[in-house]
Simulated assay, not measured.
Amino acid sequence: MLLPADAVLASATATSERLGGPGSWLLTLPASAIAGLQVLCRSVLAGIPPTLLGKSEPLTAAVRRMPAGRRYTSLVPTQLRRHLDEEPDALRSFDAILVGGAATDPALLDRARAEGIAVVTTYGMTETAGGCVYDGQPLDGVRVRVTGGGIELAGPTLALGYRLDPAGTETAFAGGWFRTRDAGALDADGRLTVVGRLDDVVISGGVNVAPASVEAALREHPSVVDAVVFGRPDPTWGQRVVAAVVPAAGATPDLPTLRAWVSARLGGPAAPRQLQVVDALPLLHTGKPDRRAVAALTPEV
């Protein structure tokens, strides 16, 4: 990735302005991920050394080590859910918590906000120097458009392209715009809603099914804590919807119940036709679910 320093700095500056000014940052993500790198950049810009969350260290303990004043951190949804269950008071001590890297369930956001936690959803990627759309609104200087259902981004936070990959650069970057592989929509006020990946759609019985929507519906069921949804070839349906779920404590999710639950909310084609119950979802180093590993845990049928 050819990501110039100016793009990273533009992102950090716009974030500081959007959040209400500089403050101290808690680093909970690896610096090898753009979200972690941006925490370091924002800290340099603020002139305040970042606080690092130690391995297995309680969030409460890390917060106590942070300087007084405005406090920020950046989490992926899995971290938000865990800390909300275990240490909500620590989350309430932040002036803003950026949540991104993966789709965040509206129910999780509603729960966090109801408990007085200042969560801010972010959308972006390495190609945009991290999150560049906050709570659906682009940062200053960032432009968003939706073309053919796909989200495109432009502005000072944009990368120059892919190193040693002119063909990939030409495909993804054109005319100052970066063509994401995400599907989205803009409302009348210019607020962006991300509805899933263009290349993750499961076509079951001729109907397009967005895995993110099914995952969100499954997480709303009282017997499910987390879920990953993907497609598998099916001789009857073309593709079948497969769900791997983490059960709530003491719960035993079953396929008929979850099929009925999803069908009532999203329609029959979106209902899973195969269910795998797992103790925990394998994660990438960024904290996002490792979808390939989840698929490997789910047997072919």
Score class of each variant (00 low, 15 high):
A5Y: 07
S11M: 13
A12E: 03
T15I: 12
L27E: 12
T28N: 09
A31P: 01
A33N: 11
Q38L: 14
V39T: 12
R42I: 01
L45A: 14
E57S: 06
P58V: 07
A61S: 11
Y72H: 11
R81C: 02
H83Q: 10
R92P: 00
R111K: 08
V119M: 01
T128G: 08
G131P: 00
D135H: 03
V146D: 12
T147F: 14
A154W: 10
G155I: 05
G155W: 05
G155C: 07
L160Y: 09
A167Y: 11
A174T: 15
G175Y: 07
W177C: 12
T180I: 15
T180R: 02
R181Q: 13
D182Q: 07
D182A: 09
G184Y: 03
D187C: 05
L192M: 09
L198R: 15
N208P: 07
S223I: 02
S223V: 07
D226P: 00
P233R: 06
D234M: 06
T236R: 13
A244Q: 09
A244V: 12
A244N: 09
V246L: 13
P247A: 08
L255E: 05
A260R: 14
A280N: 08
L284E: 15
L284G: 11
R291Q: 14
V294I: 14
L297E: 13
